[in-house]
Every structure is written in structure tokens, then in C-alpha cells.
Simulated scan of single mutants.
Amino acid sequence: MHNRPTRSALYIPGSKPRALEKARGLPCDVILFDLEDAVTPDAKVEARDTLREALAQGGYGARLRLVRINGLDTDWGADDARAVADMACDGVLVPKVSSPGDLDAVAELVPDLPLWAMMETPLGVLNAHSIAAHPRLDGFVIGTNDLAKDLGTRTRAALTMALQHCLLAARATGIVAIDGVYNAYQDDDGLRAECNDGRDMGFDGKSLIHPAQVDITNAVFGPTAEELDLARRQIAAFDAAARAGQGVAVVDGRIVENLHIVTARATLARLDAIAALERT
């Protein structure tokens, strides 16, 4: 799994220099530089050059820089892929992945960069495990808007099975899984509730449509003070039990076994990774 934090993944239009400049100072963990939905057809060709120049200038720190291309079934997709292959980014986000073959086609055009898959079609969800197992794939980004449109559903609850299916596939193959967007960017309470829902499911982070959503998302998907305190106490108690020749410990009236220590150490490692990113 990726060592970098992926709590907040913010979409930034690749066609807008002002937005690309502002993104350099935003505290998101991942920047999804978009050549697809956020760019109008008449601006798509020029957007490649605009984005290439911005990435070449740098200034994005240690944030994960992913470029979402147009689909290869469009007039722009293949040229997008060829252009991204030479950009200063960390990976290519492929839209509407429905099978591993969709990734194979992009991999031929982008030989060296990791691939990420937008999971936003019913067929893609059904094929989630075979997609997740692709040797070039680093992660999923769930496209809940497109998925809801194709399913004809009106609620997030109706997407639960699809979200969990993608998450199971990601966990089975060791890749990152980032939840879909929350559209009401001025509704802080709604965003927090949906972030908590995704975090409780097990997602690594959430994709965002507006910078105002970053702080809440980072807070929810980062380890809480209570989680950090519990992790430290579990590790201390388990180490003390091990020194006494015991295989388990007890913390707050609950048994602590080695599997809990694996989770506890991962929680502390996540804190260290977030702190390192925020120092850049």
C-alpha cells in the first residue's frame, strides 16, 4: 500500500493557471489534476500544455500528483495519455475503468507511471478484484456521481454494496481506496457525516471538489487523539505482557493480541507520515 497519506484528494482543473497556482498552498494530501470532467471540450488540448508547465514548475511539495486523463474512447484520451507520460507527476488516473483491459490500453501509452482507476461504472464494480490486481495499479478513486447516475439511485446508502465491494478488492490486493466526492461543498455537517461514513467503512481518504472541504476531510481521515492514545497504551501493555512471558494483554477491559498491535503501529505510522507531509 502507498506510504503517502491520502486523506484528501482534491480535483483541480488542468486548464486553469490560477487554480493550479493556488493548489501549491493547499493542505490536501493528493491533487487530482483533471483533464476530463473539469475541462470543457474547447480547452482540452490547451489544458495539456498548461498542466505540463505547472507541473514542471513544481512547488507541490510531497503531495501525490495524479493526472486524470480523458477516456481512450474520446477524441482526447490517447493524446492525454501520451502527454502525461512526460509530465512531472506521480501517476495517471484512468476514468471509467470497467475491466483490466482498459488499464492495459493506457499502460501501453504510459510505460513508466503507476496507474489509478476511477471506479464509476456498474461493470467496473463487478470486476473490481480483477482491476485491483492489475500489476500497474496503485489505487482506486470511487466515482460516486457517475455510478449513482448509471444505477439510477438517489442515495449514498444505495451505493453501500458497491463501495464495500471496491474496498474489499482494494484490501485484497493491497492498493489504496479513496471514497467519492460530496457535492454540497458548503455543507460542513453533511461533509463530516459522509467522511465519517467512508472512514468507518475503511477508506483511506475522500476525493473533494472544493478547497473548503480539505480541513474537515483531513481531520476525519487522520488518527484522532483518542486513537493515538489507545494505540500507545496497547503497545506498552502488550510489550509488558511479552516481557512477562504472556501472549496477550488487557487494556480498558479488552483483550489485546498481536493483531491489535499491528493496527496500533499502523496508526502511529500514519501520524508520522502525515507530519512528514505537512512539513514539506
Rank of each mutant, 00 (worst) to 15 (best):
H2Q: 13
H2F: 03
P5R: 01
R7E: 09
A9E: 00
L10H: 11
Y11V: 01
I12Q: 09
P13E: 01
S15P: 00
R18E: 15
L20I: 05
E21S: 14
E21W: 07
K22G: 06
G25Y: 10
G25C: 10
L26H: 13
C28M: 12
L32H: 04
F33H: 09
L35W: 03
D37G: 08
A38F: 03
V39M: 00
V39W: 02
V39Y: 01
T40I: 15
A43N: 14
A47N: 02
R48Y: 04
R48Q: 04
D49K: 07
D49W: 10
E53S: 13
G58T: 03
G59P: 00
G61R: 08
G61W: 01
R63M: 10
R63G: 09
R65M: 09
R68A: 11
R68Q: 11
I69M: 05
I69W: 02
I69N: 01
I69F: 02
D75Q: 13
D75E: 15
W76Q: 04
W76V: 00
G77H: 06
A81L: 09
D86C: 15
M87W: 03
C89V: 05
V94C: 08
V97K: 01
V97L: 03
S98E: 14
S98T: 06
S99A: 15
S99H: 14
D102Q: 06
L103P: 00
A105L: 13
A107M: 09
A107K: 08
W116N: 05
E120W: 06
P122D: 06
L126R: 13
S130L: 13
S130T: 14
R136S: 15
R136I: 12
D138R: 12
V141T: 13
G143H: 05
G143F: 05
T144C: 14
N145K: 14
N145L: 14
L147G: 02
K149L: 13
R156I: 14
A162R: 07
L163E: 15
Q164S: 14
C166A: 15
C166E: 13
L167R: 04
A169V: 01
A170F: 04
T173M: 07
G174P: 08
I178W: 07
D179C: 11
V181M: 06
Y182T: 10
Q186T: 13
D189E: 15
A193G: 04
A193M: 12
E194Q: 14
D200P: 03
G202A: 06
G205A: 08
H210F: 05
P211F: 04
P211V: 00
V214E: 08
D215F: 08
T217N: 07
N218A: 10
A219D: 15
A219F: 07
A225G: 06
E226L: 12
E226Q: 12
E227A: 15
R233G: 13
I235V: 11
D239F: 08
A244F: 07
G245Y: 05
Q246V: 10
V251W: 04
V251E: 05
G253K: 05
R254N: 08
R254Y: 07
I255S: 10
N258C: 08
T263G: 00
A264M: 00
A266Q: 13
A266K: 11
R270M: 12
D272I: 00
D272P: 00
A273R: 09
A273S: 11
A273M: 04
L277R: 10
R279P: 05
